[in-house]
Design a protein around this nucleic acid. Structure first.
Length: 482
RNA sequence: CGAGGUGUAGCGCAGUUUGGUAGCGCGUUUGGUUCGGGACCAAAAGGUCGCAGGUUCAAAUCCUGUCACCUCGACCA
């Protein structure tokens, strides 16, 4: 009693989202134990709760990669400088952010080694060795690893010097097949983002200015954070024969002709964890999508010193686990029920089940869903199925809520003034002439960039470019981006 | 990397202007009472004041450098 201020203090440790979005984000990821800062410039330590989330994401993605015919491999972390230099555009793009190893033991190395910022150069070198004939194609490999980019400004998950990701690299006999692969993997990413992470994304093609260094075409999925800024959540690239020409990946075709292979690559990273936080989180903290939440259901025994409560709670846990759910039984007696409620809400567990003597007597458990905070008693009889359905509903509700937010923050602009206003709060959908100068101008004036050009180009708001007024070529999204 | 701000116990902060024995709340530990929305009582532990130099009889406080975080730019998944 008389501790009202203390009660508020715990929640107040998270800066209100409405007050300072950046600080809210930092508070949430630190206080929910997803991550900590490392004693290395710009690097993060992913803690058990955060890593469990990443493992769930990996499992879901990996399953989809395998289902589309890809195999995992492991490449070295170091790239000899001479190898990195072979594709000019690629080097130019990555050179400013490469970290170098110059010494081994006590000896200075004759050739310095780059710590991989991405592994196109290694994959291409190996593909050149492995591919001889059209019968060897396609080769569709992926690796899970970390890469290092010496970034100027870093933020946990969104941009760190070292980050964990997957990079798929494939080579194909024909341009059609490479293009099909590029679009297929973008679709795999979209499906994963929307149906697993509950993140609505806009897919489309990047402009030449924004495409990957060395790519002929880059496609992306773009998500909107709750401050209206865009987060590039995944990219796929079609390199054509750019890299195979530089690295000599040639094969004998069916017709006996020596041809260059067509290459693609695609990647998603731990940045997606940041996207989950910034898309779904609220004033209480995290809100984790049920399909990747490390803990889907937390059981809180109430008055657990009373006879039979803990036993019944354990049986409930076993029953739910047997049904394939990820369950935590919080039987810590050091904290009050109310304290635990708040902690698990902050950590974003989708469903809480309270089980006390009264519930047991009535044959129910009191449920609370994190997305809407709605409480409802659930019959213990057949509860596993009920909870599964509830988790599915939470997923759908979270996705719909995020999509409604996004759609409400997409503005159509036909003038620069409208564009300026729009990118303060969200994305701007506009007609664009296709020239680099107009992109640069928007960047310079409003610090916003082009995100991508949707595949469905219908519904152009104007036949004139929003920037220069010349005839419009493309429907495109502009936004400030992370 | 440029401009501005912050850094004192695990967390949140006071103390810095005007140099003079390191403080508060929460948390933690131990014992007890509690337990359906952030419990209570009692006792205890915990800090080379981000780090490195310097000035001084004396530095959390003044000076220089450096690191990290936040905001705004330039660069990027």
């Amino acid at each position: 009693m008389g501790k009202k201020n203390d009660k508020q203090e715990f929640v107040a440790h998270i800066t209100p989202r409405s007050e300072d979005f950046s600080q809210w984000y930092t508070d949430v990821i630190l206080k929910t134990d997803l991550v900590d800062y490392a004693p290395v410039r710009g690097c993060m330590v992913i803690k058990p709760y955060g890593y469990a989330l990443w493992e769930r994401m990996q499992a879901e993605l990996d399953k989809r990669f395998k289902a589309t015919g890809h195999q995992n491999v492991a490449m070295p972390m170091l790239i000899p400088e001479s190898l990195l230099l072979k594709e000019a555009e690629h080097v130019e793009g990555f050179a400013p952010e490469v970290a170098w190893v110059t010494q081994g033991g006590n000896e200075v190395l004759p050739e310095r080694l780059a710590i991989r910022p991405t592994s196109e150069t290694l994959f291409c070198t190996m593909y050149a060795k492995w591919v001889q004939s059209w019968r060897d194609l396609p080769m569709k490999y992926n690796q899970w690893c970390s890469v290092m980019r010496w970034e100027k400004t870093t933020r946990p998950f969104l941009r760190t010097s070292e980050f964990w990701w997957q990079e798929g690299h494939t080579i194909h006999a024909t341009p059609e097949e490479a293009q099909e692969e590029t679009l297929q993997m973008l679709e795999v990413y979209r499906d994963f983002a929307e149906n697993v992470l509950a993140l609505p994304v806009l897919t489309g093609r990047k402009t030449d200015k924004e495409k990957f260094a060395g790519a002929r075409a880059t496609y992306s999925m773009e998500a909107m954070m709750q401050d209206g800024k865009a987060l590039q959540a995944g990219t796929t690239h079609n390199f054509g024969t750019n890299f195979s020409e530089a690295y000599g990946i040639q094969f004998l075709s069916k017709e006996g002709k020596l041809e260059y292979a067509h290459e693609t690559s695609w990647g998603t990273s731990t940045r997606l964890i940041g996207a989950i936080v910034m898309t779904h989180g609220d004033e209480r903290g995290l809100k984790l999508p049920p399909r990747v939440a490390p803990i889907q259901v937390v059981i809180l025994p109430i008055a657990m010193h009373k006879e039979g409560v803990l036993e019944r709670a354990r049986a409930l846990k076993a029953e739910l686990e047997a049904a394939g759910l990820r369950v935590e039984l919080d039987d810590r007696d050091t904290y009050s029920a109310g304290w635990k409620f708040n902690e698990w809400e902050m950590k974003g567990v989708p469903v809480r089940l309270e089980l006390g003597p009264r519930d047991i007597e009535n044959g129910v458990a009191m449920s609370m869903r994190r997305d809407t905070l709605e409480k409802k008693p659930l019959e213990l009889d057949g509860i596993a199925d009920t909870v599964k359905a509830l988790l599915d509903d939470i997923h759908t509700t979270m996705f719909e809520q995020a999509r409604a937010f996004r759609d409400a923050h997409i503005y159509t602009a036909t003038t620069l003034e409208e564009l300026e206003k729009g990118v303060q709060n969200g994305f701007v959908k506009a007609a664009w002439c296709g020239c680099r100068e107009c992109e640069d101008k928007v960047k310079e004036l409003y610090n916003a960039s082009t995100r991508n050009m949707p595949f469905d180009q219908s519904g152009m708001p104007s036949d004139k470019c929003v920037v220069c007024g010349k005839p419009a070529e493309k429907l495109i999204y502009f936004a400030k981006a992370y």
